[in-house]
């Protein structure tokens, strides 16, 4: 193991850049799982769907991957609302969300993955855009644009959602459901309606995160599984309901993974998220920002 300052600082920088991308993949889970207690383990499958939408639009029509997914976020939002409505009627109302609901999302994760596999095959797919390739050099630190864009978009997405939750009526309603769904019903609100909007929002963020993923690296359908540990690790580490916590936890995970892959080899990095998740659950289950 060789240790050098420029290797170390480059690893830290790329870890922070990676962390920015992790914000985008985890924010949906923080809303849906952390705040609203819907265990959507199919979230990574929606991220992959976003990636393949970007790939399809880019290779077929030459559209920028980010623009393609920004447009796709609108139908994804409504699709998410529909999906939640179905989930609510089929499982939540019957009080069977723990076993059957989990298995439902597991089945969904699986169906989406196999469907993507049948449509796009097992080959690695990538997109073309002007910002993939060039890097900014500051001294001995290099910042590739393909990692800087996801950082900007990822952080921006979380900030927009923080503003949305604290400023708008429906956003405040989401926070209200997260804190006390019974109290919301007592003042005449419908937690189901609010959860529906939040779920739609979460799926929309997953689609955008997919575009960021395919900008960072080529993807293939089974890739999604690597992100299950990551998204839940970030949400739990960040304290379940806290969005600033999500940003901090994303950065911690990004930097840990980057340091590991620089000094131990990239094949070890998938294990980091799980290790962090287990340590958090064993030592401090409420996370760093939890109350």
């Amino acid at each position: 193991m060789t240790f050098s300052l420029d290797l170390f600082s480059n690893a830290i920088v790329s870890g922070i850049l990676l962390g920015g991308f992790y914000c985008a993949i985890a924010v949906g889970i923080t809303i849906v799982f952390g705040m609203l207690d819907i265990v959507n383990i199919a979230h990574p499958a929606f991220i992959m769907t976003g990636g393949f939408i970007a790939y399809f639009a880019n290779t077929q029509f030459g559209i920028d991957p980010l623009a393609a997914c920004a447009i796709a976020m609108i139908p994804a939002y409504y699709l998410g609302r529909l999906l939640y409505r179905f989930y609510n009627v089929a499982f939540e109302k019957r009080g069977e969300e723990s076993l059957q609901g989990l298995a439902f999302f597991f089945g969904l994760l699986f169906i989406i993955e196999v469907a993507l596999l049948l449509i796009f095959g097992v080959d690695y797919r990538f997109v073309e855009a002007p910002y993939i390739g060039p890097t900014i050099e500051i001294g001995f630190i290099s910042i590739p644009w393909r990692l800087l864009i996801p950082l900007i978009v990822g952080l921006g997405l979380v900030l927009v959602i923080i503003a949305f939750l604290s400023r708008t009526f429906i956003g405040k309603a989401i926070l209200a459901v997260s804190q006390d769904p019974l109290a919301l019903r007592l003042v005449g609100g419908s937690p189901v309606k609010v959860k529906e909007v939040a779920f739609g929002l979460s799926i929309a963020t997953a689609i955008l995160a997919g575009a960021l993923l395919i900008i960072i690296q080529p993807i293939e359908p089974s890739f999604g599984r690597d992100f299950i540990g990551r998204v839940f690790c970030i949400t739990v580490l960040g304290g379940m309901t806290s969005l600033p916590g999500t940003i901090v936890a994303s950065m911690i995970l990004g930097v840990s993974e980057s340091l590991t892959s620089t000094f131990l080899g990239p094949s070890w990095s998938p294990a980091i998220a799980f290790g962090l998740l287990l340590i958090t659950l064993a030592v401090r289950p409420v996370g760093i920002f939890g109350r």
């Binding site: 690597d226 299950i228 799980f274 290790g275």
Partner: peptide
Amino acid sequence: IATLALAVV
């Protein structure tokens, strides 16, 4: 969730 990630590790 932990068992889901266990296979990956």
